[in-house]
């Protein structure tokens, strides 16, 4: 499987071994981001890095796990509720004059969204390469869900991300 080296800037301690070992000079860049065009995916930099800051990221992923219909139905109910809660928290944040309540409701909206995203991920939308994700985008392009839907963004996603399921 083809892979590319990616540096996590938070972990990088600038020990420079990746610079010494890279046969094509892909790790030596002005912004510390490994050059995708040059990287051959050989992995020597990841092995040499003493701080574990470089990982070999695959370019292709296996199909995501299938989910049971009963799980999807129950998950859908929580998702629907989470969407409602986020709306209330956002509205309360917007309306309040109290800065403390504003902070708490902003935090609530973020927190609820994160929980909701997690549910969505485990309910058939783990991979952007999945059939589910692509069918969603296609549906929105064919039938825009509301006026001014950014169709071109959805189309660009379809063009850029290949499907990993038959």
């Amino acid at each position: 499987m083809k892979k590319l080296a990616v540096r996590n800037l938070r972990l990088c301690t600038k020990d420079c071994l990746c610079l010494y070992v890279c046969p094509v000079g892909a790790t030596d860049t002005e912004n510390s981001v490994i050059d995708k065009e040059k990287c051959t995916g050989c992995g020597v930099c990841a092995q040499a890095c003493p701080s574990g800051a470089i990982s070999m990221v695959p370019l292709e992923y296996p199909p995501q796990q299938q989910k049971a219909e009963t799980v999807l139905t129950a998950s859908r109910a929580v998702c629907q509720n989470k969407a409602g809660q986020e709306g209330i928290a956002r509205q309360l944040a917007e309306e309040t004059e109290d800065d403390a309540l504003y902070r708490l409701m902003s935090a609530a909206a973020k927190s609820i969204r994160l929980v909701h995203e997690d549910l969505s991920r485990e309910s058939g939308y783990m991979l952007p390469q999945s059939k589910n994700a692509r069918e969603r985008l296609q549906g929105w392009i064919q039938e825009p869900p509301a006026p001014d839907f950014p169709r071109e963004a959805a189309q660009e996603l379809l063009d850029r991300i290949p499907c990993n399921e038959s």
Partner: peptide, 13 residues
């Protein structure tokens, strides 16, 4: 599905 659900679906992806 509501727009709120679509929003989370997209931010998850």
């Amino acid at each position: 599905q509501s727009f709120g659900e679509f929003a989370a679906l997209c931010s998850n992806l």
